[in-house]
Structures are given as structure tokens and as C-alpha cells.
Amino acid sequence: MQENRFVIKNAPFLRGKEDIKSIMWTVVVALLPATLWSIYLYRYRALTVILSCIIFTELFEMIFLKVRGVKNVFEKAYDGSAFITGLLLALNLPSTSPWWMCAVGSFVAMLFGKHIYGGLGNNPFNPALVARVFLLLSFPSIMTRWTVGINLTSQTFATPLGMLKTQGLSSVSNLDYLKLFFGFPIEGVGGGSIGEISEFAILIGGILLILRRIIPFIVPLLYISTVFVFTWIFNLIDPIKYASPFFHMVTGGLFLGAFFMATDMVTMPITKKGKIVFAFGCGLITSLIRLFGAYPEGVSFAILIMEALSPTIEKFTKNKKFGE
């Protein structure tokens, strides 16, 4: 008897080389330009914040994996997802953050952001953003203590967006947008969170992610252009009161949020139309908060709010079944 050698195994037949690990570490590489630039500017301060965030997230990741009774704790803990959460959290904190605040943030991110929902892939909100907003509401004074890069004095200044909010447009009218875009320190102006100083460095990483097809280009593009158009409209209505759209491009965490946080695979809507609605909503809420809200910067709030909307968006943008 000739044995049947035509064995059909289970689908999927074609397998890509990409898995969680490779994607996560690519994102880490994409974040490197921004990370290195922040370390160059803030030296040991940035390094302390980044290291303590990463160490604590990995630590809590392992603890919670163990508590949940997951097997291969070490393999799971080093798939890079916790590393990214830690790095993103660090890039969203000011350079003067004390280590214990990084620890609190890491704890919140890992527990309430991730493991309470059953770990990677189940969380409705981006863990790093949950932690950032939690810290912003819990320690508002520490979270808004910005220093100027390179000179490591502890003198603090407001960020351009903060100046715009409290002192009006005239205080920021003579800032060099190109300097802000490339992330060079300006005397008397706070740099902002350590990862959001250089839009240029983030752009490099973002383009890498788009070329590797890890993030859909439509989300950052639409997010940023919505903010641009919205702020432009108000700038045209009243140029004395509202800043130019280019100012809103080069300040704050818009690029970091648009490229690295709004594009979180887990929390973004799955459908293509849903992604468009999601990005548009993020841009709209960001501009609303920046122009009219109490907080100078709205990126993290906007993304969290849209993530809360994300399942509903998915529901309304479901693809039609063929023939329906």
C-alpha cells in the first residue's frame, strides 16, 4: 500500500517572518533617534528616567506574569512589549522626574494598563498613556517641571505650548520653528517631555516604521494634518489670538503621539475606515484641547479618548459581507 503523502496541514499556509518580538524590537529601533537625542540633551537625567522606567516596567511585567500564572515568564517578559511601554513612558516624562515617579508610572502602566485586562493584546488603552495621564493628574507640579536642555541647572521654564496658554501668542512669536523642529535647546524655553523635543528624530523613526509596514501611514498623516488644518482655520480667523499651524506642528508631543502612540496595534480600530475616523478624531480633540482647554497639551488625552471610542468606531465601520 502506497501511503498517502499528500498531507494537508492546518491553515495558515504562508507564514511571514514577523512576530511580536521582531515588531516590538523594530519599534524600539525606531525610537532610538529620539532617545539618543534626549540623552545627548539631558545627559544623566534623561538616562536615569529612561533606565528606571524600563527596569521597573520589566520588573512589574515579570511579577504580574508570574501572578497570572503564565508559563515561560522570561520569554514573555522579553518579547519587547514591556520594554516599549517603559521607553514610551520615559519619553513622555520631563527630564526632572524622580525615579520613584517612574516606578509608580510603570506600576500603573503594567497593572491597570495591561495585566488586569489579561496582558498584551487585550488592553483597551495604551499602557504608557494611561500611566502618563495618571502621573499628570497625580503629580501635576513634577510633571510640568521643564528644563532647558544641555545646561543642567535645575532652573525650570514653561514649554512653548505652556507659554502660549498662559502668556498669549506674543510670548512665542519670535521662536525659531526650525530650531524647535530639529530639537535644539532655546534659552528660556522648556524643552518638554524628553522624547518630544526633536520632531525630526521622531520623523526618522516614524518613516522607518511606515517603510517596514508596521504602522499604517494614514494614521499619523491624517492626525497631523487634521491638527494643521484645524489650527490653520483659527489662525486665519484671528491671527492675533491663535498661533500659526506650523507652531503647533513643531511643539508638544504631536509627532510622538501620532507616530508611536496613536498607532498602537492593540488599541487602534481594526478596520481601515475606522483608522481614518480614529486619526481624525485624535487630531480634532488634540486641537480643541490645545486651543480651548485648560491643559496646554492634549495629545495624550485625545488618544485615550479616541481609544475609548475605538470599539464603537469598529462597530460602525465593519466591512459589509459580500452580497449584503
Binding site: 491597570f112 488586569i116 485586562y117 483597551p124 488603552f125 494611561v130 495621564v133 495618571f134 493628574l137 480633540i285 480643541l288 484641547i289 480651548f292 482647554g293 485648560a294 491643559y295 492634549g298 495624550s300 488625552f301 485625545a302 485615550l304 479618548i305 481609544e307 475609548a308
Partner: peptide, 25 residues
């Protein structure tokens, strides 16, 4: 955490997000 417990935590996180609207008007 199944059921209402995770619900309350999610509601808390939603409330955290809605803080962003503070001072809009």
C-alpha cells in the same frame, strides 16, 4: 477581576481620559 470589577477599573480609566476636556468652556 471578571465582570463588574474590570468594569469599574475601565470606567476609571475612561474618567481619566475625560479629564482632558477640563476647561474647554
Amino acid at each position: 477581576f471578571k465582570g463588574p470589577a474590570i468594569g469599574i477599573i475601565t470606567a476609571g480609566l475612561m474618567s481619566l481620559a475625560f479629564f482632558g476636556f477640563t476647561g474647554l468652556v
